[in-house]
Design a protein around this nucleic acid. Sequence first.
DNA 1: GCATATATGTCAATAATGCTGACGTAAATC
DNA 2: GATTTACGTCAGCATTATTGACATATATGC
Lengths: 159, 159
Amino acid sequence: MPLAKANPLFLRDADLREALELLFFGYRDFTSEADAILANYGFGRAHHRVIYFVGANPGLSVSELLGTLQVTKQSLSRVLGQLVDERFVEQRTDADDRRRRLLFLTEKGQGLENELTERQCALIARAYRQAGASSVAGFRTVMMGIINEKDRQRFDSKD
Amino acid sequence: MPLAKANPLFLRDADLREALELLFFGYRDFTSEADAILANYGFGRAHHRVIYFVGANPGLSVSELLGTLQVTKQSLSRVLGQLVDERFVEQRTDADDRRRRLLFLTEKGQGLENELTERQCALIARAYRQAGASSVAGFRTVMMGIINEKDRQRFDSKD
DNA sequence: GCATATATGTCAATAATGCTGACGTAAATC
DNA sequence: GATTTACGTCAGCATTATTGACATATATGC
């Protein structure tokens, strides 16, 4: 039992394996409703991520979005191109640095963003309300501990 | 602001959007180390899920695994076939119902399972230790709230 | 025993997402 | 003027997933 040795204190092997499964099933359910909505538009999870982060950060540049999503520009290109072609996302040249294309949601894009985010927020809101404020604080603490230091800084500023 | 209306109490829109991002970044970091290990074997996340659940439930049948993973048998077939061909997973006909193929990890498969699970458990263990027992309890409560009732029963029995 | 249902496997076609590599263009910077 | 940066694009390929159709072995109900 190599794992048992590595985990003293209150952390039994079973507790840690349970956490792996909580994350697996939790993430699956967290994404499944949005996946269903996206399918109606012929989109997938990659489109969702673009819509979400552009919606949350209007005026984001392409390279910033690449950094956030951690994908190659070739991967993003197809997805972003579709969203621009179908008028969900709008690109405007940055006046200060005309090489940069700043990304914004169109009204249509904002509509889809709302549809997706409302559903996911409703799921989280239900879970948060049932759990109560102190459990929510614990959830945030554990999730931040899982996230690498660089990305964690996105959250440090809040509260 | 349609979301603000829907969330009374302490749940501000910003809190819920933060949760979406915690789950996105958290799940990405949670899986990234294992993904790197799997790449050395020419495997992907799908192989990991099979290895994990067969390791956690020796003697699982194919249909039970399909139900857990929620994929089609055609999807599973290729992945499971590779794992069987390369002797990570072993299939034994169920003596009681000779239609069923029960799945087990071989020694080689158990080795890979340990390698993967140890890494992920180490990440979780670190986050759990830093967060403390009460935050861990809150994390569990919130994650269970996110998981649909059917799958939640996997966890209800524990503790 | 025979019909039906179940558990599994397989072939074929298709889609979404990701990758690497190569090349091109416009604009900023040194 | 040379170099770097930001962005785009074309081509090829891999992984994971889907649906649909069909096959086989075994169990079960009548």
